[in-house]
Each structure stands twice: as structure tokens, then as C-alpha cells.
Amino acid sequence: MTWTIYLSGEIHTDWRERIESGAAEAGLAVRFTAPVTHHEASDDAGVAILGAEAEKFWHDHKGAQVNAIRTRTLIGKADIVVVRFGEKYKQWNAAFDAGYAAALGKPLIVMHQDEHAHALKEVDAAALAVAKTPEQVVAILRYVIDGALEGYTDGKDAAR
């Protein structure tokens, strides 16, 4: 079985690439999906396709709706959803994705630093794991997909 992992959240660091390369190095049978991470393209998708809007609200509204087609579809098809909350920006869309995944009953891994623990306590409560680093996410994926736990002689030991 190939697992589908949806990677949601901040777009300003290399966390997605670190998870993807770590999963490849671990030989995990995974396929990664994500929202459009080109910030301007994502913001302008609605008006670029459906036509300009005079007011910023409607510009953003069209973009959000077009992006939601992708997001809802890919979260719905995911086996696991990983949501990253970064240090610099408020990722309201990431919080929405986490809630949407939780409502669908998707296994949810949340990633953020300690300073966001209070603000994200409800999101964390819905998650099955709360990690701080992409490497911890890879270790979780390795364990749940292959039953392999670092420090054990083989994956079978971890599953006992």
C-alpha cells in the first residue's frame, strides 16, 4: 500500500522538503500532496481564472474558493494529514485544514514550537501526535507505515 500524506501549513521554510527527503531515505511507500505553495499564485488563482474583482474581499474570496477545491479533495483522499504552524506568520488556513481533517476523522499530525502550544491547544487536542520537527514527523511516519522504531533491531520489535 502507498500512503498518501497531505502536507498543510506555512510556506516560508523547507519543512516539506525535509519530510519528503526523510521519507525517501527511509524507503517509505508514500505519496505527498499539498496546497499550492506559491503564495501569489494561490492568492490570485480565483481572479486569474474567473476574472478581476474591484474589492480585495471578493478577490480573496474567489481565490479561497478555488483553492478549497484542491484542499478539500486532497485532504479527503489523504491517509494522514500533517499541519505545520510556523513561527513568523499566523496560518489561519492551516488551522482550518486541521479542523477539516479532524472533522473527516483523518489521522492528524500537528507540528509547531512550544510558544504556540497555548494558542493551538484545541488543534493539538484533535491531533494524534504533536511534533516539533520534520524529523519527528518522518519518525512517526516510519513507525506507523513500517512498524520500525529507531533503536530497535528491526521493525517487528517495535510492533510487539
Rank of each mutant, 00 (worst) to 15 (best):
W3H: 01
W3S: 09
W3A: 07
T13Q: 11
W15C: 05
R16D: 04
G22V: 02
A23K: 08
E25F: 04
R31D: 11
R31S: 09
A34H: 13
T37W: 13
H39M: 14
S42F: 05
D43I: 11
I49L: 14
G51H: 00
A54Q: 13
K56C: 01
H59M: 03
H61T: 12
K62E: 02
Q65N: 14
Q65K: 15
N67E: 13
R70A: 11
R70E: 10
T71Y: 01
T71P: 03
L74S: 08
I75A: 06
I80S: 01
V82R: 03
R84Q: 08
K90H: 12
K90F: 14
A94L: 03
A103L: 02
A103T: 08
L104S: 01
G105R: 00
G105W: 03
P107A: 02
P107V: 01
V110W: 00
M111A: 06
Q113N: 10
D114F: 02
H116W: 14
A117N: 11
L120G: 03
K121V: 10
K121R: 15
A127E: 09
P134I: 10
Q136V: 10
V138D: 04
A139C: 01
A139W: 05
I145R: 06
G155M: 03
K156I: 07
A158D: 06
